[in-house]
């Protein structure tokens, strides 16, 4: 393993401590792209061939939350600004407020109702990001509603920037480079990447903070710049269905005689299901 300066790789707190760049007055800017999605435990229903989100609790996407936390930590360590950018319907403002309550400084909300595919969203977001000219950008590794992994790399392509996907650690090296650790299909990699760059989040990146009451109060006064959009999606969603496999639910009580239960289970798998 390459030694990452004197930092302790296993301690996310140590990762952002005592930045020399904070002292030199370089103004940095860190952007997190965020989306609002159904809460993980939410019960989804299909209405008229589409997933209906009325009455479903909507939250800041968990993977985006890692990105928001990371840009706030980077700002706390290096100074500058932590900005969140969202593209989504009016209701996304709640997720934006959550990010602001966590500690982001301000927000830009590109307001658009209806489905827009991730590639088109990336192209649209690129214009805002270019205007903001940040040091780096975070997006979620995969969005919990689209199950898409394209937003981060497509945004990087639209900007002509490098991308690092499934990032578990980031460390700035001045204003021009960052060192990052990220997951591959199998295994991990440590890379040095030129800035500005787009990173996508992965579990292990950090432990997001909960918004505090003073944080929530402050968030109400923070700026959300709204930009109305009308863009058309390249991809059309024709129909959504929930095909929950009906499960057999054959549960054996193994509390009294675990050996007999195990024998019966293996027999069922062999003779009835025929999978072993």
């Amino acid at each position: 393993m390459v030694a990452l300066k004197s930092h302790n790789m296993d301690d996310p707190e140590d990762w952002h401590k005592a930045s020399p760049y904070k002292m030199k007055g370089w103004e940095m800017k860190f952007i997190a792209i965020l989306r609002q999605v159904p809460e993980n435990e939410a019960r989804l229903k299909v209405e008229g061939g589409k997933v209906g989100l009325n009455g479903v609790t909507m939250v800041l996407d968990g993977m985006d939350e890692w990105g928001v936390e990371e840009v706030i930590r980077l700002k706390e360590a290096h100074g500058g600004e932590a900005v969140v950018v969202a593209l989504g319907p009016e209701r996304s403002e709640e997720a934006i407020r959550t990010a602001l309550a966590m500690g982001a400084d301000r927000a830009v909300h590109l307001v658009s109702e209806g489905y827009i595919d991730p590639i088109t969203q990336a192209q649209t977001l690129a214009e805002t990001v270019l205007e903001e000219a940040p040091t780096l950008v975070f997006t979620g590794g995969q969005q919990a509603d689209w199950d898409s992994q394209a937003l981060g790399p497509a945004l990087a392509e639209a900007l002509g920037w490098p991308s690092v996907t499934w990032t578990t650690k980031v460390e700035l090296e001045g204003q021009t480079h960052a060192k990052a650790k990220h997951d591959l299909d199998e295994g991990q990699e440590i890379v040095r990447v030129s800035l500005p760059a787009v990173f996508t989040s992965q579990q292990g990146l950090n432990e997001p903070r909960y918004p505090t009451l003073p944080g929530i109060m402050k968030a109400k006064k923070k700026e959300i710049r709204k930009i109305p959009l009308s863009v058309s999606s390249k991809v059309e969603v024709l129909e959504q269905t929930i095909q929950e496999r009906s499960r057999l639910n054959k549960v054996i009580d193994g509390t009294k005689d675990p050996v007999a239960a195990a024998n019966e289970l293996v027999k069922l798998l062999h003779e009835e299901a025929k999978v072993i």
């Binding site: 639910n249 549960v251 009580d253 193994g254 509390t255 675990p258 239960a261 195990a262 024998n263 289970l265």
Partner: peptide, 19 residues
């Protein structure tokens, strides 16, 4: 689940392995 056992995995697993 299609099939399941409510029980202590430390007792069930060795028996499953045997079977």
């Amino acid at each position: 689940a299609d099939y399941g056992i409510v029980g202590d995995v430390h007792q069930v697993l060795p028996a499953m392995l045997e079977a």
